[in-house]
Amino acid sequence: MIRTSLAMLALTAATAAQAELTADYHRYTVGDREYEGYVATNSAITPKGTILIVHDWDGMTAYEERRAEMLAALGYTAFAIDVYGADENPQSVDENRALSGALYGDREEFRARLMGSIAEAANIPGATDAMVIMGYCFGGAAVLEAARAGAEMDGFVSFHGGLGTPEGQDYSGVTAPVMLFHGSADPVSGMGDLAALLDQLQAAGVTHGAEVFGGARHSFTVYGSNDYDLNADQGSWEGLQDFLDAQL
């Protein structure tokens, strides 16, 4: 992938003296394909846990890199994983749709890439046994796919993700809590989809939670997008920290 890395995340004055934030790209292989993720760590402290981030439908970009750096600043080892491949660099809606649609259409391949990337987390600098996986939009749907596939994690977090459950899948094998952050005005996955998913999690006995942001649309955390909602972005980030504190 061709991309420009963000400048290192500026830390607050209260934590700057104790922080040694480092970040770099991480190449790895799943099956016969090479992938490129992004790892951010704070080498000045013992990591509180490892957080995996699944990218949106436009692939690994500066957005996921920034989120990884934000998590590292909080004391976590962050690994933004890649499920498209190191040679993919989508630049248009059509290209985004083709890559994400191919994985939605081949769930076994989707799961293989997710599980391979999760396994790779053990090889990154600052890796810990305790792990949570999170994702935004397409990445949020991927997180739920990983949960249904039986990924052994300490938590699953979906931000404005696709919430539908494919035919033949269920949540019966999920043993870690699932947390959902969603907008009430999301035109992609509406409140009916959220209610249906919560019913499934309840029926399967999965510990779960949901925080709904009134009026927020689909991409409410994506700064610069037409859907960006500052209050929902900040509220969901605070909710994420509460979830991580409870699980790690």
Rank of each mutant, 00 (worst) to 15 (best):
A7F: 05
M60V: 02
A13V: 05
P177V: 03
T41R: 14
T15V: 13
A232D: 11
V30C: 07
F159L: 08
A98D: 13
G205W: 00
A151L: 03
V212F: 02
S117P: 04
G224P: 09
D170C: 01
G116H: 04
G209P: 03
H55I: 00
I118G: 11
D242T: 15
E152M: 04
G183C: 08
A127Y: 06
Y223S: 13
T207F: 00
G192L: 06
D56V: 01
L103I: 06
V188Y: 10
M60W: 01
T61N: 06
G224L: 10
Q91D: 09
Y171T: 01
D58Q: 08
Q202A: 13
D227I: 05
D227P: 04
Y35I: 02
L240G: 12
R111W: 00
D106N: 15
G164R: 14
E167W: 03
E88K: 14
G215I: 07
G215T: 11
Q241P: 00
V143F: 02
D154K: 14
A119S: 14
L99K: 12
V188D: 10
A196M: 04
E145G: 02
L197A: 00
G155D: 11
V132R: 07
A102R: 12
E64L: 13
Q91G: 07
R113I: 06
G205N: 04
H26Y: 14
H55L: 06
G214N: 13
Y104K: 15
T165P: 04
